[in-house]
Computed example of a mutant assay.
Amino acid sequence: MRKYHDSLTGQLQKVQGLYTAKSRSTYSQEIAEGPQAVREALTWAKDRVRDIYVTEDVLDRYPDIEALTANHWTHVVPGPVLHQVSSDCQGVLVVLNTAPTPSLDEVFADTELVVLGVEMQDPGNAGTLIRTADAVGAGGVLFTSGSVDVNSPKVIRSAAGSTYHLPVAGGLDPRSVIARASREGFQVLATDGHGEVTLGGPGLDLARPTLWILGNEARGLGSDILGRADTTVAIPIPGQAESLNVATAAAVCLYASVFARQS
């Protein structure tokens, strides 16, 4: 099921439109771009795949991707034409139907580790958070309203395919997530530079089921969210840096939970 294009067709222009949140919402479609994200989409979300757009060069260089395209509509496009659609796709992108938003029931089932990003607006940080949560075996990644669109191509690319491995949901009310976590027996830990306890110090049992909350890149967490947490946690910074990047802070906290469960 291969089709060849040599110009920016109307179909490709529609794909180009999916780089805007409005079009993604209108058509309930999203884009995975770059070899790694595409590979994972074709493996883990193949039932949602609509079309693949790829250059001959990518098909030659990545035999595994070529094999994965076998059962899908595959549009072979010259590199300069595909570059007009996306300068970041590295010669391959996939259009998928957007997955239904997972419920909190699904996210909190059969897990002891969930992460919530509050007004996290940088797509690179959001994607890295998803990738890290996937790496540590978390049950899901949640984002509040005011955060970046979790279906953004930049988020999906930054997550390097992890978007398709675990539940990810956006646009949530943080108060509802915190209340649900508490009902499920999770401790709610919020990161804060002036936290009540220090990560790695006494007074913190990370072997317990945990909801980690991380805040906006510039502002952190507001007093309302901090006040709803069971404990606020500071990451020690013995060096001269003023703070940690939020995605780095998330990795430190999530792996601390992993290590606590292994000890």
Rank of each mutant, 00 (worst) to 15 (best):
H5E: 15
K14T: 00
G17Y: 00
L18C: 06
Y19Q: 15
T26G: 03
S28Y: 02
Q29A: 09
E30V: 00
E33M: 02
T43N: 12
W44Q: 15
W44M: 15
K46C: 07
K46G: 07
D47G: 04
E56W: 01
D57W: 02
P80S: 03
Q84N: 05
D88W: 01
C89P: 11
C89R: 05
V92I: 13
V94W: 14
V94S: 09
D110Q: 14
V114S: 14
G117M: 09
E119Q: 15
A126C: 12
L129F: 13
G140W: 13
V141I: 05
G146Q: 03
V148K: 10
V148C: 11
N151T: 04
P153Q: 03
P153C: 02
P153V: 00
A159Y: 05
A159F: 06
A160P: 06
H165S: 14
A169G: 10
A169M: 07
S176H: 08
R183H: 10
R183W: 14
T191H: 12
G203F: 00
L204I: 10
A207D: 15
A207H: 07
P209T: 02
L211I: 01
L211K: 07
L211G: 08
W212T: 01
G215W: 02
E217K: 02
G220E: 07
S223K: 08
S223R: 09
G227K: 07
G239S: 12
Q240N: 11
E242G: 05
E242C: 01
E242V: 00
A249Y: 12
A249M: 04
A250R: 03
A250T: 04
S257C: 03
